[in-house]
Amino acid sequence: MIVAERKSIPDLVEILQDHKKILVLGCGTCVTVCLAGGEREVSIISSALRIASNIHGLDFEIEELTIERQCDNVFIEEATDAINRNDAVLSLGCGAGVQALAERYAKKPIYAGLDTAFIGILEDRGIWAEKCAACGACVLHQYGGICPITRCAKQMLNGPCGGSREDRCEVRPDRPCAWQLIYHRLKGIGQLERLTEIAPPKNWEPGHGGGCRVIVREDHRI
């Protein structure tokens, strides 16, 4: 899922201060699961903004709404009336949701209430971790299902850097070294020989290196 975190209340107040009627719009998909922008967080952030408005004399009138999926026009449609009756929208969707709204409502200011962080998983209660960098050309089959591009701070493809420790990454002391994980995993599944070949430079063009990406499926364009 896409994992995000809410912006701070002072940041949100600064973004919204010139507006009065504000729709705080949640998304029922990824950001609900990562507890950043679902129905519950819409209520919490709205409540905090009302308290802040009261303290700072800002006169916010906040409406709350959560739709199933902000990155999909079919679901965005459900928010049209609420969007129209407010001066601005604070989207608690991911960056894709915010932009889907902005593309559809040309005259309405749409603001991001979250910092979209990464594609990841819930690793443990209250801990989300990045797993995929969306590089557009998956190499997981070569590395025992552990992504060196995402999980190695230097995205090394031919083994660990010198700072690798058995229990930690040099850059992130709170995280394991991806290369230690890859080594043990490949050894465990009898594929350690994969590490002995020199992996050539990666083609970054299918990733963000090739510019903003689009996928066209002709069989779906009739």
């Binding site: 701070a153 230097k154 995205q155 090394m156 493809l157 031919n158 850059v171 992996a199 050539p200 430079p201």
Partner: peptide, 28 residues
């Protein structure tokens, strides 16, 4: 070499490049 990661330098806000790794540079 790959070098100390940028977050271990005084310029920790730098973008991460790491287009190729040290072994790929040697091969180049």
């Amino acid at each position: 070499l790959s070098g100390h990661h940028q977050t271990l330098t005084g310029s920790r806000q730098s973008a991460s490049v790491y287009d190729i790794d040290s072994i790929q540079l040697l091969a180049a």
